[in-house]
Amino acid sequence: MIGYTLKRLLWLPIVLWAVSSLTFLALRIVPGNPIQTIQNQVMDKSQLAQVEAVWGLDRPITEQYLNFLSKLLRGDLGLAMSSGVPIRRMIFERMPPTIELAIVSLIISTGIGVLSGVASVTIRNRAVDYCVRTASILGLSLPLFWVGIMLIILFSVNLRWTPTSGRIGAGVDYDVITNFMFYDLIATGNWEAFGSFLRHLILPGVTIGLTSAGFVARLTRSAMLEVMSSDYVRTARAKGLYERDVIWKHAMRNALLPIITLQGLQFGAILGGAVITERVFSYPGMGTWLLDGILERDYSVVQGGIIFVALAYVLMNLLVDILYHIIDPRLRHSSQ
């Protein structure tokens, strides 16, 4: 188990090196650079050349690459070219909101998905099964961005329950400690700000949660169908256990494997791919930050952001694998 984890951890630097090198190259394949994109209107040629020299963009590409790698090894992600703010500071600002969004949406999609998937298998009623199957295929056909806007029209414009955008109300005072508001606002006992924070988080969370609950429900349904007809479930019933215990303790433990894989991958995807939802709700997370960086061709933002997202994604996959081994004893023996 520990050996397996260590072996996987050894791969991590190699994957990160590959991802950062690919990103470095992809950004530089096309002619032009961020300084020219940002400053083209206001500077003449000699001024442009001066600024390019400051950022080291006038050097040969191999030198730029080695310089980038050596800084990366020291944990230095550089400064954003468009704003001059250190990348590390921007990740501190942008990562926590996205992680909070990812957690809330996973709770919603797992809750709805697992419950409805289990219901469609265990409640022996064709109508229930049919409804769950229809709702889940509908869920995975809905475009994320449109669901977000429809929720805004319903809950923000018509019912006025929630704000239309942002992470917290504009006039609200609060202290930043970790920038995870869920922790900061509870630790400081700032309940007014906490309420505002929750009201901002709920719609984006529901948007991602609803659209991915369909996958979870389909997966839970098929896993449960397979498990419920297995020998040990029949044995558990024959022993006279309550049906509730048979479903949640015996069957669920085995049906959990594919669900954990799906949700682990989903978590990784939200960290980098919540671009659409964050854009709809003007939510200040990694997704909108990376998208702006990509559109401005801000080398440092894109490099720093993508390396960080890839790191989170790979670590998430590793965590899923480890959880897998904990839940399924068969795997524990096969990997030794």
């Binding site: 994957v15 991802v19 690919l22 995807a269 791919g273 993508i306 997202v309 890839a310 994604y313």
Partner: peptide
Amino acid sequence: VMLSFPSIL
């Protein structure tokens, strides 16, 4: 490597 990126990204 290609699959290790979120596809939208």
